[in-house]
Amino acid sequence: MSNPLEPLLNEIIARLERGVPPWRQPWANGADPSTPLRSDGQPFSGSNAWLLAFAGAERGYTSPFWFTFRQALAIGAPVARGARSALAILYKTRVVDGREVSDSGDVGEGEAKTLRYLKTYAVFNAEQLTDCPQTYLEGPKVDPVIRAAAREAVLDAIPARLEIGGNTACYVRAADLIRMPPPEAFGCMEDWKSTFAHEAIHWSGAEHRMSRTFGQRFGDAAYAFEELVAEIGSAAIGLRIGLRPQILDGRAAYLGHWVKILKDRPGALLEASGHAQRAVDHLLAYSQPAAVSQPLAA
């Protein structure tokens, strides 16, 4: 059976080979990164968040809203003729409670099974619709002061031990701390925060937090896969708090590893996105009222 993600994977691999990771959105003109929204205003998550954010930024859309063909018809704004869709991913599981249904429709007894299916579907930005209501074209209003305060609240609430000094940003697993160069070593404070977010994703994977290890499945490529999780995760958290990803730097050395991983294991992209989303949820929880129950760093 063909892989429904094959066209998307081929495009991502081609971009990686050109040195352009698609989760590093090409924000221009001071645009504020934001999570893409469904037609009902709910945010996309996981792979769809960074895939559609990239598609929108690359094509110059300012609206965060995305619609299926039917959703566009439902608001009386059909998709414009010749509009080029973007791909979104649908991944679901369904538990069958011990009943097996044959092709003839007969029901028999059996063990409970978890069925998984994945497919891609076409979505269109609000700016590709005909006579689209203005509320979808403009998107939710964002107060930059409130947004900045919320961003600081999220980053400040992460209880990682932080050591400032040196010229390398890294998570030191043995000491369970994040080491960061001083802010003045970066082009701007936003680059410092983006790099910190990247290292915080690594920090979330410690054994006494999310216990994220990939040695058995990825062997020598495990370190590169963890870096892929951190790359996607830092881009995802940036969308949530309006933090632009840092320009690709020394991590360019991982590009070849990521290409090989995705070619060898097509499912690795969804696996990395899933781990990244769970890491982002873990970090965001520290700034929520229930965060008092979160385990603190040693």
Rank of each mutant, 00 (worst) to 15 (best):
G41M: 04
P183R: 01
I247D: 11
F69Q: 12
K141N: 10
D264P: 04
Q216W: 01
A28K: 14
W66Q: 11
L239W: 10
G60M: 01
Q134G: 11
L239S: 02
A57W: 00
V79N: 06
P64C: 09
R217V: 02
R99W: 09
L248T: 01
N167I: 08
L155N: 06
P78R: 03
A268W: 02
L37K: 10
D97A: 15
F44R: 07
G165M: 04
R244G: 08
T213M: 08
L118H: 03
E17A: 14
S34A: 15
G187H: 10
V95D: 15
G56T: 05
L255Y: 05
E271L: 05
Q71F: 05
A235I: 02
T114G: 00
C170S: 10
F214G: 00
G205Q: 05
F225Q: 00
R38S: 08
A31C: 03
S102E: 06
E58A: 14
H282W: 15
W203Y: 12
A272W: 01
E58Y: 06
L16F: 05
S104A: 13
Q277M: 08
D176R: 13
I241L: 13
S273T: 07
D103F: 06
A53N: 06
N125L: 09
R161N: 14
Q216N: 13
F218H: 14
S287Q: 11
K141E: 14
M210R: 15
L162K: 07
A291W: 00
E226D: 14
I164S: 07
E227R: 09
G19S: 06
D32T: 15
G205R: 04
C188T: 11
I201D: 02
E11Q: 15
G242K: 07
A291H: 06
A174H: 11
M1I: 09
G215W: 04
I158H: 06
G105R: 07
V259E: 02
N125T: 12
E231L: 02
L162Y: 03
I13F: 10
D220A: 15
L177D: 02
G233W: 01
N167C: 05
T130F: 02
A83M: 08
F69P: 01
D156V: 11
P140V: 08
V95W: 00
Y171F: 13
P140C: 07
R179T: 06
E138M: 12
G242C: 09
S63Q: 03
A235V: 02
G187C: 02
P21G: 04
Y121Q: 10
V229W: 00
V259P: 05
A206V: 12
A290W: 02
L115Q: 12
E100K: 14
C188F: 14
R70T: 11
Y121L: 06
P33L: 00
M210L: 15
T114C: 08
E199W: 03
P183L: 04
E58D: 12
Q25W: 04
L269N: 10
K92T: 15
T195V: 14
